[in-house]
Simulated assay, not measured.
Amino acid sequence: MNSAVEELLQQPGIWRANAPARNTGLEHVSSGFDSLDACLPGGGWPLGAVTEILHGQSGIGELRLLMPALVELTRRGRWVALIAPPHIPYAPALAAYGLDLSRLLLVHPRAESDALWAVEQALRAGTCGAVLAWPRRLDERSLRRLQLAAEAGNSWSLLFRDVRSAEQPSPAALRLQLEERKGKTLVQLLKCRGGHAGQHLLLDLERDVRLPATEAPAVEQPVAEKPARRPRRAAPRPLSRPPAPAGTPQLDLPLAGGAPRRGRRR
């Protein structure tokens, strides 16, 4: 009897209540953190849905947490759109991660209503793998519109919101709350469609990450009577904060301080 039950449970259409669903009907991309993938339905971030990142302050690792997935999406040839980012993206840090900068799109709308319209259009276009936005105010109706747009374009909608938004109902498939804990990042799953809410993970964003390998560029040898000494190339440290002018506000990678510039693409 027990063997028959175990055989039944091995069927892919059977979901155990104590395990995250693997067949969610959505496409997923790995987070780059094995322990987080194990908690997420489908084994990664859900495309075609809204993910909310709630935090009390900026620069505690909210973007570093997403970088492996964003890198993977650009390698698939899809765009990553940043709508009204609060700081200017730091291109050298993004490139050090492996992000294809030719697939990065920046949009700086003039008004909050224009920003939400831009997010919805980018999600529906179907060419954006991920659309990141930092809305100040967002009601449930607007959230549902973004959820439908993400489904239509099979895009990953990422909304960075204040932690107080946790009290607001949301149709998002995934809601995470981040806190800084002694140099590490505490990830709380507030809502997880197809999985278990209430789970807590303590991640070291520098050591636990699994970044895809990048190919080193070829170095041409100079022609000389004596062999030229090749300078030692220090390994890039994309997780360290780049220096900024005094008095300039700055986030941990990949955003650096400064006022937004006009333009759609850098």
Rank of each mutant, 00 (worst) to 15 (best):
R210P: 00
A173H: 04
Q250F: 04
G183C: 14
H200T: 01
R230Q: 03
D139C: 15
L190V: 15
E151Q: 14
L239F: 08
R164W: 02
A218G: 02
A150W: 09
H196I: 14
H200N: 01
S240Y: 01
A235T: 12
A224W: 02
K191W: 14
V187R: 06
E151Y: 01
R232M: 05
Q147K: 03
V209Y: 08
P222G: 11
P254G: 07
Q168C: 15
A149T: 13
A235Y: 08
L189N: 13
P254N: 03
P222H: 03
R229E: 10
L189S: 11
K182P: 00
H196S: 13
A197Q: 06
L205R: 06
P212S: 15
R237Y: 01
L158K: 02
R233I: 15
A246G: 02
G195Q: 12
L189Q: 11
G153V: 05
R237M: 05
L251V: 04
P217L: 12
P249H: 05
P245A: 11
T248Q: 04
Q250H: 07
A218N: 05
Q250T: 12
P236H: 04
S240C: 06
R230V: 10
P236T: 14
D162C: 00
G195F: 08
L176I: 15
L205Y: 02
P171K: 13
K191R: 13
R193W: 13
T185A: 13
R145W: 11
G257A: 12
L143N: 03
S170N: 11
T214R: 07
V223S: 06
P254V: 11
A216E: 15
L148F: 12
S142F: 03
G247Q: 06
P236A: 11
P171G: 14
E206A: 13
A244T: 14
V187L: 10
P169A: 11
R210F: 00
A166I: 08
A244L: 09
R161E: 07
R241P: 00
Q188H: 10
C192A: 05
L158W: 02
D208A: 09
P227N: 01
S157R: 01
Q168W: 08
V187P: 08
G195V: 15
R145Q: 09
P242R: 03
G183E: 14
G153L: 03
E167S: 11
E225T: 06
P238D: 10
R175K: 07
L158A: 03
P243T: 08
D162P: 00
L190E: 06
A235H: 09
L178V: 12
T185L: 07
P236W: 07
